[in-house]
Write a protein that binds this DNA or RNA. Structure first.
Lengths: 176, 176
DNA sequence: TATTGTTATACTCTATAACTATA
DNA sequence: TATAGTTATAGAGTATAACAATA
């Protein structure tokens, strides 16, 4: 709510008329990028004291719900490539939040578990997450939020629907 | 449309019951991330022959609409930090799409212009962009698209509304 | 002193390719 | 041969700090 620069009537003639961005503001892709960036920044602020980023909370949540799930499956559920999931896990393990155990059934695979510390932390994080969710969707109401989630889901499903998706990363499994 | 692995009735007992992701799929931030990723991937495919990414098209569009606008203003309009905008521009200039001229009015600043080649290219890109937009929003219809843009705008505005935004990057200027 | 643009640097995310050890 | 996980590597995207030239 800046009080408007209060131009001195002879300071600077025109206030830089705001560039013409058309047609960007009317494009779904552009709106998604801007909104995602804004929400992401807010998330970082809201979780700054925990030093947690959205992907990390995603991993902790999936491991909480599915203890013992093997690494590949956790990564695939979140759309993270095998290759990139390792370093991400390293960070969470170095903080003592996640533990890994070699599976008896398949000695190649590693099952993921939350440590006691991880369980305590994820409970706190989920509480704050719920508050964060209420905060960012405060302006659109419950109905708007439902609409938004539905529309986003339809767009994402449509994008997955066609073209090349051979590889591994996007083997989702969530949206039916 | 894979024909379903056709389990041999004694091959693998259960088909891995799809991990529980709750509450992630019901979170606006998570849905934004997934949808943004999916749309971004589709964009790259759709513009692969041009080797153009969304941000680059954004820059070209703003320069087309506002020839002579100084570098800082173009970057700020798109939410790109001064520091990171330089290298991005280098790429577009190396391809001969954008030219820069030192401004007479302020000899610190550089005005951005499209080269003739850049003008030709951006016309083609915008045509394809329109087709891409119809493609990804095909499943939600015109009404759904309007709703989606409105909801995304409200979320983004709400995120910008509070907390720390002192620095330069997010000096938007678009959304009123 | 403030602004424009630059360089240097770092961390995260994403992506490919090649390797091991199990299966 | 195929899978689980790793390493190495590369490119974007984002972030800070410090600098030169200009205002």
């Amino acid at each position: 709510m800046k009080p408007a620069p209060a131009r001195a009537a002879s300071d600077l003639p025109v206030a830089e008329p705001a560039p013409d961005l058309s047609p960007l503001p009317d494009l779904v892709g552009y709106a998604l990028r801007r909104t995602h960036m804004a929400v992401f920044r807010r998330f970082r602020e809201a979780f700054a004291d925990y030093d947690i980023r959205p992907v990390q909370l995603g991993v902790l949540t999936v491991v909480l719900n599915n203890p013992g799930l093997k690494q590949t499956a956790v990564g695939a559920a979140l759309g993270i490539k095998r290759t990139n999931f390792g370093p991400l896990l390293d960070g969470l393990m170095a903080r003592g939040l996640i533990e890994r155990k070699r599976l008896e059934s398949d000695r190649r695979a590693l099952g993921l578990y939350l440590s006691p510390l991880g369980q305590t932390l994820v409970a706190e994080l989920q509480a704050r997450e719920a508050a964060f969710e209420r905060q960012i969707s405060a302006t659109i109401g419950d109905e708007g939020r439902r609409d938004l989630l539905r529309l986003l889901g339809q767009i994402a499903a449509g994008c997955r629907g066609s073209s090349a998706e051979d590889d591994e990363p996007e083997t989702d499994g969530d949206v039916p």
